[in-house]
Design a protein around this nucleic acid. Sequence first.
DNA 1: TATTGTTATACTCTATAACTATA
DNA 2: TATAGTTATAGAGTATAACAATA
Lengths: 165, 165
Amino acid sequence: MAYDDEGLRGLLPAMTRLSSALSRGQLFERATAAAGTTLERPAVTILVILDAADRPLRVGEIARRMQVAGPHATRQVHGLEQRGLVERVADPDDQRARLITLTAAGEKLTGRYLRVINGWFADALAGWSDADRRDLVLLLGRMVDDLSAHLETVTGDTGDGHPVD
Amino acid sequence: MAYDDEGLRGLLPAMTRLSSALSRGQLFERATAAAGTTLERPAVTILVILDAADRPLRVGEIARRMQVAGPHATRQVHGLEQRGLVERVADPDDQRARLITLTAAGEKLTGRYLRVINGWFADALAGWSDADRRDLVLLLGRMVDDLSAHLETVTGDTGDGHPVD
DNA sequence: TATTGTTATACTCTATAACTATA
DNA sequence: TATAGTTATAGAGTATAACAATA
């Protein structure tokens, strides 16, 4: 069967370790401190998403990209607005929607944060060959794409043909 | 500077997406349901750790491998014990310590869970060449190792020369 | 009537502090 | 006095339900 594929042994453990390191390690907390703020992690995630988007995003779109429920994004955006890191204006095309943009202060903070994180990554992988670095980024990106796409196809299915209940 | 390294552009976004997919996506919830249980995610993590360890582990060692604080492991282990999935016996060498082992039921459940997850991974990456699969597992594993090791070296340091406090 | 976002509430995950038992 | 684990409590992160405003 497919799950016996030798080539994939070690993938789940590696991903689990990575997930643990990212979600519970102090990577983000330290980088946040180094960037000079006390923001919570989900708030920083929103800043990075806005920075990468390079255009205003709706609250719902932010929630979708974070893979969280709407109300969670709403709350975090409010906190960022109160700190003057984002602006929230009505969408001229749809008065129900709100468009979120980084302020100058938000851009500056996000830039500092990303430089710290990317610096650590670069240091950690300093001994790697250029080819390995390139392959890692490529393969990791492809894996995330393929994994996300495949999981959509098994929605509502246990993956082994049996109903969940 | 190191963080301008072109070869690493795209690494943080890919890792962030992977982290979101793993921590908030329904991957684990669905696999847990498919394995026929309603266990919480940290409890399943403990089962997988015990399965991989192939020997009894102390509560403290489980916490260390999960990268969580001790009391969290204690509670989860208790939940697993009540369901009959693990056994908790005093360490003969040290009466303070407790050794945790999978019961037969625990092993069976863990096996079902891992088969489901690994099956999904294999299906998602079915179109990959053997070489790419092998490279992914290798590079991902190395990255986690190097990243973990490097982050230890910057403990108590902001990464830019300033003390955290 | 459907959609965007918000408010209110509750649950899951995890941490810190205080404690017990053994070393 | 130090260590392994536990109990109690608190906080961060996220979800669901009910609602408001606009489409």
